[in-house]
Design a protein around this nucleic acid. Structure first.
Lengths: 346, 346
DNA sequence: GAATGATTTGCAATCGATTGCAATAACTAC
DNA sequence: GTAGTTATTGCAATCGATTGCAAATCATTC
């Protein structure tokens, strides 16, 4: 009989706390406390159970535990895409951001639930999986839905938004120095003696609006009057962007430089300018925003404003997690930095 | 007393099946069957309970249900990044792929767990969250870890890989016509009278090896002898790619065209060539692979091989889900298409 | 009206953990 | 040795669903 018991023991794999407890001759409760490092438990017992668990390659079933504790250890990430222009998630900036968030979440042993369907109304999320099956939500961008985000943030699920801190908001914001970024890039162009500087971007979006504000401040500092015709609403999606740029060019409005709201937009602009026979930077200088990896390898290499994406992801994650713990969390504004390359230089 | 009951009724929100059952005056079991459309149940009862649930905005707690049924309704997506070259997930191709997979999974009501830490050894995943807490895994790329993937695929968790079907594999593969893609692009260059065509890419990776094979077939068809010196191992990451290209150029090996294993690599090549004073396509024609969105907007616009990413995501997802259901799943090879643009033309 | 069979519904165990409270064991001091 | 503490451990309820089996209801037929 003995050998049968033995073989059974070695064969049966440890799949639950009960198995482990049986094997160790203790109760399930004790096993649970051991693996959770409860201070109630005797150190020796703890150690013994831990070793046993390790030996049998057992670890607590995360889902059962989460279920019991009524938490999910999941954070949803929602990309707020621009609807009008059918903006696609393929903007490399988004992927870098996502990667950075994924890294930080993994460090904290949280899972990431990805949602990227463009939404006409974020309030539709209210009773959705996104809100119900995650402990917190990170929105990438505010789009033009600030009010609705504000409403959504009234719920119990913590919400952190990558974007611009609008007065009166009741969600937590993490963002770059958008205003300063717009200011720096414009100032840089002004320093190069450009005076007819256009702004490409949709200012319905608070981040872009701030960048535009920085652009205006720089102009005013150099006593250049802002020309409303040089503020052009360019969609995010490249094909539509190209069309919008061609339309703008058809207006024959004269300009010698462009501040773009994103690198992808800047690259689309450069490509379109070149197609139309303009040289960059000789005829038009261009600066972007984001410093996506490709920016350094475009032709010409793109002058742009670098956002600290690694840090952004870290702070976004730490902010939601802190909110989940019930802590008070304040907004964070990360520094942005002008990276000068050839697209704006000599 | 009555009004108290009433107010309690309206106040208490329905959060579990028990609540709903109590409210309807049936058992929890009946409520469960109603919402799961069990054929056992009377239609009227079903309808009544469904309406009640809807009215109170209640739906079954997914996590409790999954827990009971011992499933996760989560699919892990693992990006197999090239380690040597520190390839970064920011390749837009990956993001498009991820978006497409996310869409398909959402349609099937599955969650997506993202993992993108570069792994020296995928076998490390064996006992990890990735395998334990998901019903199936999608790998993007095989890297150079075919053997290990094969080993991993012996486990119970279904695995589908985006890549190239290697003989003797025991995982399911979904991929593009890599060989044909390499063939088409090389043939195109040959048709333009190029004869000294280089191949940029790391052929340790099966997909790239297939693209290279297509390149060789085209050369041989045109009776051009393949020159081993023109097969250059370029890393994925742009900065290292640039260095490798500069090193190759320093060898003074003469060439008039390049077939690249990816668009990002092609863009880095073009940028480096231009930096070194070569004109594209006049001095060197370049073709890429993937047709990322930016390819059409580079300078010059990039000739490339388009992969059907939407379809790829759909098939990857449907393949894992079918495997989870226990069905027999075969490999899928999706068509790829040469897109001719200026970087290879006149 | 009773017997038979077909429909519906309910009981209660179960998935794998956590934890308040009670019970026991181990010390301490007198 | 006993009473009073304190340190450990176990009991059993619980989280929110699902489902095999038994019980109850209904319809049908003689």
């Amino acid at each position: 009989m003995e050998f049968i018991n033995l073989s059974e023991k070695t064969q049966k794999s440890i799949t639950s706390l009960q198995d482990l407890a049986d094997l160790a001759g203790v109760s399930r409760a004790t096993a649970s406390r051991a693996l959770n490092d409860s201070p109630l438990l005797n150190k020796k017992t703890k150690e013994r159970l831990r070793k046993l668990a390790e030996k049998h390659n057992y670890s607590i079933n995360r889902r059962a535990s989460d279920f019991r504790l009524r938490r999910t250890r999941v954070i949803s990430v929602v990309f707020m895409l621009d609807l009008r222009s059918d903006q696609h998630m393929s903007d490399p900036f988004f992927l870098d951001m996502l990667g950075s968030i994924a890294d930080s979440l993994a460090e904290h042993d949280y899972d990431l639930l990805l949602t990227h369907a463009p939404m006409r109304n974020v309030l539709d999320l209210k009773e959705s999986r996104v809100m119900r099956n995650s402990d917190g939500v990170i929105f990438i961008g505010q789009g033009e839905q600030h009010e609705k985000l504000n409403e959504l943030a009234k719920g119990k699920t913590p919400i952190v938004v990558w974007g611009y801190p609008i007065a009166g908001k009741n969600y937590v914001v993490v963002g770059s120095e958008n205003l300063n970024g717009g200011y720096q890039s414009t100032r840089h162009l002004l320093g190069l003696q450009h005076r007819k500087i256009a702004f490409f971007g949709n200012t319905g979006n608070p981040e872009n609006a701030a960048r535009h504000e920085g652009y205006l401040q720089a102009l005013s500092q150099f006593e250049v009057e802002a020309d409303a015709d040089l503020k052009v609403d360019i969609p995010f999606e490249m094909k539509s962007a190209r069309e919008a740029i061609i339309k703008f060019m058809a207006s024959k409005k004269s300009f010698d430089a462009v501040v773009c709201a994103s690198d992808v937009m800047a690259l689309a602009s450069i490509s379109t300018f070149q197609e139309l026979g303009l040289r960059v930077p000789q005829d038009v200088a261009v600066v972007g925003f984001d410093d996506i990896r490709l920016a350094a390898y475009s032709n010409p290499p793109l002058t742009t404003v670098r956002q600290n994406i690694q840090e952004a992801g870290r702070v976004l994650v730490e902010s939601v997690l802190a909110m989940i713990k019930g802590e008070d969390v304040t907004d964070t504004i990360l520094p942005s930095e002008l990276i000068v390359r050839k697209s704006s230089g000599k």
